[in-house]
Design a protein around this nucleic acid. Structure first.
Lengths: 122, 122
DNA sequence: TCATTATATTACTGCATGAGTATATAGGAA
DNA sequence: TTCCTATATACTCATGCAGTAATATAATGA
């Protein structure tokens, strides 16, 4: 961590990204795309442990990805805005592009004529 | 990691986000916004150790955020597309919105008349 | 009050990962 | 070759964090 004064912003951004960069939390967020849900519902739907879900939700809450509302015994969580969906969409698109590209490269490799001398693969 | 068959996509997305979710790597990416740079330049500009920068670059390369080109003794890295900038922009915007919102709340709190009975703050 | 349900927190464990140092590899010049 | 520069990798250490189990807190009803 050898940064100067401007380090703080990067740390802030990184912290927010870290909150998103976890498969369990992405799974939780994905369920919340369908609408608000209480903790128990999320536990059931994701198959994660209750304590686990609770902690993940606290992280998502702390970084502003979700909002809460208590209704009697239940605490309902919902997406606070489209931020997480937006970011995931960008990532997914890039993953698909990469896959498509690799597929093209592979196809070109498989369809080419046998090398006349030796080919430069290894 | 108690996921079913659909876990893989989340893991993929999380891995890509993790690659971005580090202050040092964000710092590197930020420098690359100005154009391609070789490792030594990035070491000088970021103040990070050489091995450190090299490792971070490999991670960014592996997740498709940067591309490389060798020119004689130097290996130049450049952004592969606008993905990282796009995502950082979203995050930064949300951080600014949050800050602005907190500022508004604080201002409203400081400017209000003294409570008549008690107020509901704690 | 006590019991029950829902959620949060704590303590613990194991694994992943970032930083630093040293070393290895690659590319080029003498 | 030998030397030098540029980059990558291996190794070690320490910290962080995800998962789980147990416990604590909160809200409600009997």
């Amino acid at each position: 961590m050898t940064f100067d004064s401007e380090s703080m912003p990067f740390e802030l951004v990184a912290r927010r990204l870290k909150a998103l960069a976890d498969a369990s939390r992405l799974s939780v967020l994905r369920r919340l795309c369908a609408g608000e849900k209480c903790v128990t519902e999320l536990v059931d739907e994701t198959g994660l442990g209750q304590a686990n879900v609770s902690k993940h939700l606290r992280i998502l809450l702390g970084e502003g990805f979700v909002l809460t509302r208590r209704d009697r015994r239940n605490v309902f969580y919902r997406l606070s805005n489209g931020m997480s969906e937006e970011i995931c969409a960008i990532i997914c698109r890039s993953i698909q592009e990469k896959a498509a590209n690799e597929k093209r490269v592979l196809a070109r490799f498989l369809n080419r004529k046998p090398a006349r001398k030796a080919g430069r693969d290894t």
